[in-house]
């Protein structure tokens, strides 16, 4: 459990110690057909969530590379969300399976890099799941609030 210790030591100082004026900056990398549409549905239904999510749209979550997540963290993102269609529902039949495999490996890597596992989620949100999206995103944001700024966030971390 060596990596868990690193993770803890890196994040311990920040946890529960959010500086005044800081608000998490979270990048959501999502597919066009399901998750983006699900977030649209959340909007149309006026489901409120904390204003921390920046949405980057690609056609399919299969387009997402682990390096995009790493780049976001390197540049100081406090959290990253990767989301596609539910398994079996991919508009391109199987892009989400490929994304899932890549992200499973990335999760291990992030731990080893000392980035808290609560800073990254890989999820599936369909075009009709605005409520689920709101719940997942809000929960994720609250988790990051508890952690404080990312250790790579140059502006806020000490």
């Amino acid at each position: 459990m060596a990596h868990a210790t690193t993770e803890l030591s890196n994040e311990m100082n920040a946890a529960g110690n959010a500086p005044e004026g800081w608000t998490p900056k979270i990048l959501a990398l999502v597919c066009n057909w399901c998750t983006y549409a699900g977030l649209d549905q959340a909007g149309t239904s006026r489901m409120q969530r904390p204003a921390n999510i920046r949405v980057l749209r690609v056609m399919c979550s299969g387009r997402l590379e682990p390096t995009m997540v790493l780049e976001a963290f390197r540049r100081g993102a406090d959290g990253v969300i990767v989301s596609g269609c539910h398994l079996g529902d991919c508009h391109y039949t199987s892009g989400n399976y490929k994304m899932e495999r890549r992200m499973a490996l990335l999760k291990v890597l992030l731990k080893q890099l000392g980035i808290h596992s609560n800073r990254f989620i890989q999820t599936y949100i369909s075009a009709s799941e605005g409520a689920e999206a709101t719940e997942i995103f809000s929960h994720f944001i609250n988790g990051i609030r508890a952690l404080g700024p990312s250790p790579l966030n140059k502006e806020w971390s000490k």
Partner: peptide, 23 residues
Amino acid sequence: NIREHCSWVNMNTPTEAMEVAKD
């Protein structure tokens, strides 16, 4: 998208919503 992903879901926090919209 500053409506579905911003003004409609961040109605109660206009200051933060402005940052999302800018981004």
